[in-house]
């Protein structure tokens, strides 16, 4: 489902990190490992065309993502890639449900409220769908963000340090939720992390290299 080779990504005019080879099947997961500041997030964003890539190839299903530009890239990202960030989960001022619907709204596709509600319920947030985002706990907000990443049945889910600053049980349950999300939607899951606890859960691991 996801295939990346010799990807060099960076910001500005020079590459900062390199990924020699990464392959993830539908419904399965991979870890993007490396110390803090190694460029894991930048590589993760480059997989979605959000960060600048300098060389290499990235295919998501049958699409060459690095060949997409502008509106076509935005459309593809909105429809086929889900994101879970480290600490930017929800937009305050909107309910949990509306935060889920932000994804189809931004992508310009039909908003399936029933599926959004069902996803929230399946993640234990059934009674909090109408609650304002700022009134959810950190964990609840993160779960809502995972639900949002699943909403459009993406081909790829990208998670950036999802377990950083979580205690062991919480980190474990987030890992479980992410793996379930990938399995249920048939997406390839890539988790960028330096959290050693995740290594036990996900065998497909790739180290980020410094750019040449």
């Amino acid at each position: 489902m996801l295939l990346a080779e010799d990807l060099e990504a960076g910001r500005g005019d020079r590459p900062v990190a390199r990924l020699s080879a990464l392959s993830v099947k539908a419904g399965e997961a991979a870890l993007l490992l490396g110390p803090s500041g190694a460029g894991k997030t930048t590589l993760l964003l480059a997989l979605a065309g959000l960060a600048k890539s300098f060389s290499g190839r990235v295919r998501i299903a049958d699409t060459d993502i690095l060949a997409l530009r502008g509106a076509a890239l935005d459309r593809f990202r909105g429809r086929h890639i889900g994101f879970v960030f480290q600490d930017i989960h929800l937009l305050p001022g909107l309910s949990a449900l509306d935060n889920l619907l932000l994804s189809p709204f931004a992508a310009g596709v039909a908003q399936d409220r029933e599926r959004a509600r069902a996803l929230l319920a399946s993640l234990g947030l059934g009674d909090k769908a109408e609650r304002a985002a700022e009134r959810l706990s950190r964990g609840e907000a993160q779960r809502a963000a995972i639900a949002r990443a699943m909403l459009l049945r993406p081909q790829l889910i990208l998670a950036d340090e999802p377990t950083a600053s979580l205690d062991d049980p919480a980190a474990d349950s987030v890992a479980t939720l992410l793996l379930q999300a990938a399995a249920e939607t048939g997406a390839a899951l890539v988790v960028a992390t330096h959290d050693a606890r995740l290594k036990a859960r996900i065998a497909n691991q790739v180290m980020v290299e410094a750019a040449a």
Binding site: L50, A71, D74, G78, R79, F83, I88, L91, A106, A107
Partner: peptide
């Protein structure tokens, strides 16, 4: 927040 919207596919 705006960057998040872009990640979600916003133009």
């Amino acid at each position: 927040d705006l960057a998040l919207l872009r990640a979600l596919g916003a133009r």
